[in-house]
């Protein structure tokens, strides 16, 4: 068996396979299908300071090789997570539990990060500066180097553990944003969040989503994501976490070869709830087939 463990900041992941926020609930939704302890870790759904109802229905549209969503960060707020979800997760799983954090203001991000920093089993947060579905869902911060720097700097001061910043692809230069958050002390960047998209019901002459536009995910975005991961991995020295349309182990390896130290599996969970564990098995098998005894031999080969 190849050595698959990787480090992200101070996190030591048993393997490079994580789940993407918003596609895996709190993990428990998938416990009938897979052993969550076989994952490197799982990133729970976007958490905000206060309860959010999210956007009105319809929030989803199937598109060629993908889907659009406009959930709008529906969640019960950070305190609900800490009191009701975290104790269960901490007791049941030894994989890393990473919380995705969103906010409408810098102060929101800081307060959520501060409250999470007290939890023993939360060793990392992923700061979402890239949600396209909420007016102040962070994408405003994530589309300029100034905004990205501002959030990263403030959260860095409040949160001493591993800080991952999730980047938006809806920018002119994702490399510039990545460099900016690295300069402010981020331990890692994850990319890409969904691409802003839109679909129209031609018969009804109406948008498919209540919010008109939404975030595109699935294999349709994968080549864009691989390209961005490759560009960013060559431009920063912190580890890059790659995501965007990974459906199977082959897809995951594409990101690893492009420079990703770890990967996140997102939309695939909706179609195949066992996708994550199958990807771990595929990577292990691939390493054996290619005579690789440590995953690091593959990271950034391209």
């Amino acid at each position: 068996m190849a050595r698959l463990s990787v480090n992200i900041g101070n996190l030591s992941l048993k393997n490079p396979v994580l789940t993407a926020s918003g596609t895996f609930g709190y993990g428990e939704e998938f416990s009938d299908f897979i052993d969550l302890n076989r994952l490197g870790g799982f990133i729970v759904k976007g958490t905000t300071l206060n309860h959010r109802e999210g956007n009105p229905y319809p929030r989803m549209a199937e598109t060629p090789s993908g889907m659009l969503n406009a959930v709008g960060l529906q969640n019960k707020g950070v305190d609900y997570f800490i009191e009701n979800i975290y104790p269960r997760l901490a007791a049941a799983y030894d994989s890393e539990i990473i919380v995705n954090v969103s906010g409408a203001s810098v102060e929101d991000y800081v307060e959520v990060a501060r409250r999470l920093s007290d939890l023993d089993r939360i060793n990392a947060i992923e700061v979402n500066i890239s949600c396209p579905n909420v007016k102040q869902g962070g994408m405003a911060f994530g589309t300029t180097t100034e905004g990205a720097s501002q959030v990263t700097r403030a959260v860095r001061e409040a949160f001493g553990k591993t800080l991952i910043v999730k980047l938006s692809p809806n920018v002119t230069s994702i490399v510039d944003i990545a460099k900016a958050v690295e300069a402010e002390g981020a331990d890692s960047v994850s990319l890409i969040n969904t691409m802003l998209g839109m679909a129209i019901d031609v018969e009804r002459q109406r948008p498919m989503l209540s919010t008109i536009t939404g975030g595109l995910s699935g294999p349709a975005v994968r080549p864009v994501a691989v390209r961005m991961v490759w560009q960013v991995a060559h431009a920063v020295s912190i580890p890059v976490i790659g995501l965007g349309g990974i459906m199977n182990g082959r897809d995951a390896l594409e990101f690893i070869l492009a420079g990703a130290t770890a990967v996140q599996v997102g939309t695939a969970n909706f179609i195949n709830p066992c996708a994550t564990v199958e990807i771990v098995e595929y990577i292990d098998d691939y390493c054996q087939r290619h005579g690789v005894d440590d995953i690091h031999q593959l990271i950034g080969l391209i």
Binding site: G22, T23, F24, G25, E29, F30, K45, E53, G54, P56, Y57, P58, R59, M60, M67, N69, V71, Q74, N269, F270, P273
Partner: peptide
Amino acid sequence: ENMMACGLGACLCCVENTVKGN
């Protein structure tokens, strides 16, 4: 019959507004 993606309660796409919220 709301449109669904996952069917498992993970994606939060098929929501209906109820007295308990979405």
